[in-house]
């Protein structure tokens, strides 16, 4: 696959944007500035970046509790995202969703989701509406983790998508841990893509830390699905470099394991590739990182300066009209 230098740099920058956002979110969570709890996408950036780049604005995705990367890759404004993480008024969800439930329907993000596998039925419904009622050529990408593949909703959704031949790409981000439990223990198969066979759909496993492999595979898969191939289960092997949530004591794994995995993380891996191709040097690299540090610093300032919604505004947005509240 012939990919221009400009496109490769664009993809690199997208991963840097996501990483920069996540590092700042982590820092501000430890500062006690961000309430609640957050789940970082650090180490998994190549997946959202390599897949979502092939989507149109009107294509739809469902995300997970670890959803910042998907939102940013789909074009979210870091300012409005950070404001949401801070629970502020102009955040994407007016402060009602927070990190774990961040969503923006105009961007085609049908929700990060606090329920493991919660997005899969939503994706199934979106695919059904597109294929059977609206009859457009939109596609749906459902992101979820290896933990979600052990839930009933995963199995129901794959069967459902298969029998109706829906335009859905099921992307499992196999990051090795479902909360604190290792998937080698908790999952019956080594490759979750093998489960596709049970639903008579195509299953593919790629190195989710290799941006090019993800990008090139996704190009083919998304084009095929858009042209009516039916659903595909695309498994991206990666590693959750951070805890399940920020502050996770991580008593279930050794530091050495994590240190080893840092050597395989997607951004430096892609940097090495770009440098070999002579598309990137240290100077440009530093410029790019500085650029996104600034973008995120501005997002942070924006979020800090934004106001909180009033307490009483908690009583809005449940319904579109004013019936049914019964306070």
């Amino acid at each position: 696959m012939d990919i221009t230098k400009e496109k490769l740099i664009e993809l690199y920058e997208k991963m840097v944007l996501i990483r920069s956002f996540e590092m700042k979110a982590e820092e501000k969570f430890y500062n006690n500035e961000i309430p609640g709890f957050i789940h970082l996408y650090i180490g998994e950036e190549a997946i959202a970046t390599g897949i979502i780049d092939h989507l149109r604005k009107d294509d739809l995705i469902t995300s997970t509790h670890r959803g910042h990367g998907h939102m940013l890759a789909k074009g979210a404004d870091p300012k409005l995202m950070m404001a949401e993480l801070y629970g502020k008024r102009t955040g994407y969800c007016k402060g009602k969703g927070g990190s774990m439930h961040i969503m923006n329907f105009d961007l085609g993000v049908l929700g990060a989701n606090g329920e493991v596998a919660g997005g899969l039925p939503i994706a199934a419904g979106a695919g059904m509406a597109i294929k059977m009622i609206k009859k457009t050529d939109q596609v749906v990408v459902a992101f979820f983790g290896d933990g979600a593949s052990n839930r009933g909703a995963f199995h129901e959704a794959l069967n459902w998508a298969s029998i109706y031949n829906l335009p859905i790409i099921f992307v499992v981000e196999y990051n090795q841990y479902a909360s604190t439990v290792n998937s080698n223990f908790a999952t019956s198969v080594d490759n979750i893509a093998d489960r596709a066979k049970g639903y008579d759909i195509k299953g593919i496993t790629v190195d989710g830390n290799d941006l090019l492999e993800v990008y090139e595979t996704a190009a083919e898969v998304i084009s095929a699905v858009r042209n009516g191939s039916g659903p595909v289960l695309l498994e991206c092997k990666t590693y959750r470099l951070k805890g399940h949530f920020v502050g996770d004591p991580q008593e279930y794994r050794e530091d050495a394991e994590v240190e080893k995995k840092w050597k395989d993380e997607p951004i430096s891996k892609f940097e090495r590739y770009l440098m070999e191709k002579d598309y990137l040097d240290d100077e440009t690299k530093n410029e790019i990182w500085s650029k996104y540090t600034k973008v995120i610093d501005e997002a942070l300032e924006y979020a800090r300066n934004d106001s909180f919604p009033t307490a009483k505004e908690a009583l809005t947005d449940l319904f579109a009209d004013d019936t049914g509240y019964d306070y």
Binding site: P121, A123, G125, A126, M128, A129, Q138, E156, W160
Partner: peptide, 14 residues
């Protein structure tokens, strides 16, 4: 799970 959850996706898809 999909019968009910799909309603959200269908509604959001228009």
């Amino acid at each position: 799970e999909v019968i009910f959850g799909s309603a959200v996706g269908a509604a959001l898809a228009g």
